[in-house]
Amino acid sequence: MSQIIVDRQIVEDSTQLLRLNEDGSFADVPATGPVLVPLKQYLAQKEALRARGDVGVWFAPDDEPEDLGADAQALAVIAVEFPAFTDGRGFSIGRLLRERYGYTGQLRAFGDVFKDTINYLYRCGFNAFAVRADKDIAEAAKGLDDFTEFYQASVQQPVPLFRRRTLA
């Protein structure tokens, strides 16, 4: 069983991430246990998957949050893939899910996730992190505290520093 960071704690994770088959067909969903399915599969099999109650959705970098829309509220977990350090589209997906669609459940980043990115992911609304296998998860968790104050507004702090100073 792998470990992930959820709400600043390192916890065991039994969730299985399913990918599309090589021919683009949908993977078979196991009968039991929590799973994350690709957005395309969720949209095609929504009724059956929602009935299970333990299914989450994962976004590829080129998926659009608008395709899930208000259905996001029905999911306990939404994950976003970061295939490479240089691919920042997932930051926007996370922020849109939180701000535009009001998603309040677990928002998980996976893929090329490590200490240097975690604080920025957190500021965009992510609260769970599947750290890259070749990185130390305890060390990566320390990245959440790399910075204590930010000038810009974020999902975590919607009021920019210059406004907070005038409120004090």
Rank of each mutant, 00 (worst) to 15 (best):
Q3A: 13
I5E: 06
I5K: 11
V6Y: 14
D7C: 08
Q9W: 05
I10D: 05
E12T: 14
D13P: 03
S14L: 13
T15Q: 05
Q16L: 14
R19A: 13
L20M: 15
E22S: 13
E22Q: 15
E22M: 02
G24I: 00
G24S: 13
F26K: 06
P30T: 08
T32M: 12
T32P: 04
T32E: 14
G33H: 08
V35R: 03
L39H: 06
Q41D: 12
L43F: 04
L49E: 14
R50H: 07
A51E: 14
R52H: 12
R52Q: 07
G56H: 08
W58A: 08
P65A: 11
E66K: 14
A72D: 11
Q73R: 14
Q73W: 03
A76D: 15
V80F: 02
E81F: 14
E81N: 12
F82R: 08
F82K: 04
P83C: 03
F85A: 05
R89Q: 05
F91N: 01
S92I: 03
S92P: 04
G94M: 02
G94W: 02
R95Y: 00
R98E: 01
E99H: 00
Y101T: 05
L107G: 00
L107S: 04
F110V: 01
D112A: 13
V113T: 01
F114K: 09
I118M: 00
N119D: 11
L121C: 03
L121S: 00
R123M: 00
R123A: 04
G125H: 11
F129H: 04
R132V: 03
D134L: 07
D136L: 05
A140P: 02
A140M: 05
A140W: 02
K142T: 13
L144K: 06
D146F: 04
F150H: 09
F150P: 00
Q152A: 15
Q152S: 15
Q152N: 13
S154K: 10
S154P: 11
S154M: 07
V155N: 02
Q156S: 13
P158V: 10
P158D: 06
P158E: 10
V159R: 11
P160D: 03
P160R: 02
F162W: 14
R163F: 09
R165L: 14
R165K: 15
T166M: 10
T166C: 00
T166L: 14
A168K: 08
